[in-house]
Amino acid sequence: MKNIFHRYGDYGDREAAGGENTHHDTSNEWPLWEVFIRSKAGLDHKHAGSLHAADAAMAIENARDVYTRRMEGVSIWVVESKYVHASDPADAEMLYEPANDKIYRHPTFYNLPDELKHM
């Protein structure tokens, strides 16, 4: 589990991502942000992509300019990429496979007569 605490996000951790270990000064690079867009009222925000911005206000505006040029959205969330915590794919078996045999959580598990309506 320690990996979950040591690595964050898909982005940001260059070593974990196996990036080239050059001594590159990124202190002047605008931080990376993840953009989530609600395409219309009633739907969830969905990950659209990422971009660089100096601050949150600029990130929202940039997201508007980059990701909603074709009326793709009505609402935008942004979060600085380094604050996204992600599960480790190596833990996939432990995390997700136990759900495989819990089919009784799904409505189709139950055999009911066809005559029954509205259930």
Binding site: D10, Y11, D13, R14, E15, A16, A17, G18, G19, E20, T22, H24, T26, N28, E29, L32, G49, S50, L51, H52, V66, R69
Partner: peptide
């Protein structure tokens, strides 16, 4: 420009920064 941006972002997930 937008397409360049999407692609730089995709490359950044591999551990290289856009500035690099």
């Amino acid at each position: 420009g937008g397409h360049g941006l999407y692609l730089y972002s995709a490359a950044e997930t591999l551990g290289i920064s856009r500035d690099e």
